Simulated assay, not measured.
Amino acid sequence: MKLHIKNMVCNRCKMVVKAELEKLGFKPLLVELGEVTLADNISADDKSKISENLIHFGFELLEDKKTQIAEQIKTTIINLVHYTNEQLKINLSAYLSEQLKLEYTNLSSIFSEIENQTIEKYFIAQKIEKAKEMLTYGELTLSEIAYQLNYSSVAHLSAQFKKVTGITPSVYKAASADRRKMLDEI
């Protein structure tokens, strides 16, 4: 049986969800971002117990199909931007369609309805958070960051960065305060 869980955005989230399910006596066969496969079907009471337990950690069981799809889109984008070491030289609509096995027009419509923003805006927000992370670590130049995040130029990255954050990447890097957001807050 598959459970869809909102706000699973990192490997620690997977560890927490797995540990909590095991603590409740369930046997997760596979724990991925946003999704858990259990060995057996569970009752409505069991789902309620799981939901009550996970809510304390900021997770939420998703029952509605559209909400599940929107969460899968977010998880796929987070994986793509934050957890792959490849440059983001892909066609996002084709990539999402391939990964989720649905037409992009349907994905786009559902995402906009549930999240009140476009997939593209969400993707850009994730890329800007990744840029902030890279700037904070200070290991790469702005040119290298722009290249890794598949921006056509440093100017393009800087313009999007300023549009999303209100400041330029250079000002962000110079500021000592960490202005990064948690991935599930974007």
Rank of each mutant, 00 (worst) to 15 (best):
N11W: 07
K49C: 02
E98N: 14
P169S: 08
D184A: 03
S97Y: 07
M8R: 13
G34V: 00
F111G: 03
K65G: 11
Q148G: 01
F161T: 06
K18G: 10
L33S: 07
S97H: 09
D45Q: 15
N116Q: 13
T118N: 10
L61R: 04
L107E: 00
V36T: 02
F161M: 09
F57L: 03
A94Y: 08
K130F: 04
E20A: 06
K163R: 15
S153R: 10
K2Q: 08
I124W: 00
L102T: 07
D45H: 14
S152M: 02
L62Y: 09
L62Q: 01
L61Y: 02
N79Q: 06
K18F: 04
T105L: 15
V164I: 12
E63I: 03
F111Q: 06
F111S: 04
S153T: 00
I124D: 09
P169L: 03
I78G: 09
E98Q: 13
T136Y: 14
S48W: 15
K74I: 09
C10Q: 05
L149H: 04
K181V: 08
T75Q: 08
Q87T: 08
A94K: 12
K130R: 09
L107V: 09
L149T: 01
D178V: 00
D184H: 15
L88H: 06
K130V: 01
T84F: 07
K162I: 01
V81R: 02
I55N: 11
K89D: 11
H4L: 02
F59L: 02
N7P: 03
I90R: 04
S176F: 14
L80G: 00
N11T: 11
A175W: 03
I128W: 01
A159S: 10
S170T: 15
V81K: 13
I145S: 02
L149E: 05
Q68T: 13
Q126D: 00
E22T: 05
L92V: 01
E185P: 05
E129P: 03
I50D: 11
L135A: 05
M8D: 08
E35D: 03
N85M: 09
H82W: 08
I78S: 04
E20H: 12
K89I: 01
I78N: 04
Y172N: 02
E71D: 09
